[in-house]
Design a protein around this nucleic acid. Sequence first.
DNA 1: TTAAATTTGTCAAAAATTGACAAGTAAAAT
DNA 2: ATTTTACTTGTCAATTTTTGACAAATTTAA
Lengths: 108, 108
Amino acid sequence: MKATFGEYIRQLRTDKGLTLTQLASQLDLDSANLSKIENGKRDFDEKRLDKLSIAFTLDIDELKTEYFGDQFAKKMYQYNCSPETLIVAEEKVNYLKSINVKQVKIDF
Amino acid sequence: MKATFGEYIRQLRTDKGLTLTQLASQLDLDSANLSKIENGKRDFDEKRLDKLSIAFTLDIDELKTEYFGDQFAKKMYQYNCSPETLIVAEEKVNYLKSINVKQVKIDF
DNA sequence: TTAAATTTGTCAAAAATTGACAAGTAAAAT
DNA sequence: ATTTTACTTGTCAATTTTTGACAAATTTAA
């Protein structure tokens, strides 16, 4: 899956033979705005990820991976970030987890 | 460098023997807000990255790497994203670059 | 114990995102 | 051909989020 998140949704939708209006209603969204989302002119709101996963019986974690991967990619592209950014991100996630573990251990 | 972006700034600042007020003024920022940034209670605004790079004679690209790496890590931690997210992000950056190249070639 | 440095709370202003609708174009069905 | 359906685009007020600013602690160190 290399496409943008918008292209991904469009693929899912057309594969299932749904119109914008049909899917939009399942997502509690205006069809005009869904069109913009699919065309990369608006962001998909993360609070609708669960509805999207239900609409297409997708695993929510895979969906989050697609969604946040897309978000990060857009930022990196926009700001011309080096690939190193992602390695740093990985280190920092681990760092955050490690200090949280400490916190939890201290708290109890 | 595993620390958060806030911890990173604090390190730079104290190493140079600057007070919050002194650095804040270089960044055109309130010292109270800089304190919050260092303590992870507010976000550093990306529009000040250039001022930060000047204040500490840092390479702007390294700084961006730290900054966006931190942003991504926070999101991933917050939403409990799988490490796979970063791989997807990398693929999608390449995808965005590839379609942009096409565009450019078509445009001229 | 006084002064400087840092932290925390609050809130209005500014900025960004969202929802909604109107008006357009494109595609298809009749 | 023309009507209907699907999709796209533009706009804007409303909501939400972020920011700047200041007052009032608390902590640290002279």
